[in-house]
Amino acid sequence: MSTLSLGVSRGHIELLQFRRDRTALVFTFAFPAMLLLLFGTIFNDQYNQPGVTAAHVFSASMLAYGILTTAFVTMGSGLALDREDGTLKRLHGTPLTSTSYIIGKFLLVLALAVAEAVLMIGVGALVFGMSLPDASHWLAFAWIFLLSVVCCSLLGMAVSVIVKHARTAGAILNVPVVALQFISGVFVYPVTQFPQWLITLGSIFPVKWMAQGFRYVFLPDGMKVNEPAGQWELGRIALVLGAWCVIGLVLCLMTFRWTRADR
């Protein structure tokens, strides 16, 4: 079997295993949607565009949060668990290559991210009345979404190497997730109210650009004045996310191993 076919087979197994874990299934999807419902209900500010409320902004921005929880956290904790319980060590003795294993994990993450995005967009449109974009914006959504999933998956895989025990994975991986949401304009908007040094710091990481890209897709063009540069900066979004994909891949190649370092 080819590397790709082995990866697809492994992805099918990963999906079946995840579906059987009802606790993970519920919390992976329910928590971001629950936060969106809370934020959208509590904050009802009106912005400079007629008919645009804080709920609409959260509905767009929090797609970045949904991808982080389903890609970065799921990939990082899943890899840490597979190392600790010996799954990776046993797979190393089979024809499954590291590339096939990673493809399988990525297919799981991609499926979860798509389902999460559908749920979040559904909440935004059906509960808060967020308008759906036209065809050209959906095309932009596709490449922003794909780059975001790839980027977060690779970074989650790379960071998993510092997780010594699977039971601590959630606590370790969620620290950067929560911190980045606030400095990247996901939970606090507009970002222009932050000090300049904090805006610069947030701009280094991909989350800021993910959220900004999704706001471009779902919000009126006039909302771009609330962005730090006063523009949507699609070219820079593609450049930064692409760069983080490369950085994540290099880190994965440097850190991936089949067993824990202490074994």
Rank of each mutant, 00 (worst) to 15 (best):
I183M: 11
V109H: 05
F218D: 04
N174F: 10
F31G: 08
I247S: 03
F256D: 09
L251F: 14
V163W: 03
M254K: 15
H137G: 14
K105H: 15
L234F: 07
A166P: 02
A115T: 11
A115W: 05
V150E: 08
W143P: 04
V191I: 15
P133F: 06
G185M: 04
S77E: 13
L112N: 09
V123I: 12
A24H: 06
L173G: 00
F182L: 14
L201A: 09
V8T: 02
R260F: 01
K89F: 13
I237T: 14
V175R: 06
V118S: 03
Y65T: 00
T94W: 07
Y216N: 05
V191Q: 15
M210H: 03
L249K: 11
G78Q: 12
T70L: 03
A54V: 01
I121Y: 08
L36D: 02
G213Q: 04
Q193K: 09
I204K: 00
D221F: 04
R83E: 03
F182S: 11
Q17M: 15
V150F: 14
F256Q: 08
L139T: 13
P220L: 02
G78C: 13
K164G: 11
V109Y: 05
A158F: 02
M130T: 15
Q181F: 13
V161G: 06
D82K: 10
A229F: 02
I162A: 15
L110Y: 09
I102A: 15
G213D: 07
V149W: 03
N174S: 15
L4S: 08
V188W: 11
S9Y: 12
M34L: 14
S61G: 05
V177Q: 08
L88F: 09
M130R: 08
T74S: 11
L234V: 11
T192L: 11
I121M: 08
T28I: 13
M254P: 00
C152F: 12
L241N: 07
Y189Q: 05
Y189L: 01
V26S: 04
L198C: 12
Q231M: 11
R83A: 09
P195F: 10
A135F: 14
T70V: 05
T3D: 14
M254Q: 14
F43L: 07
S61Y: 00
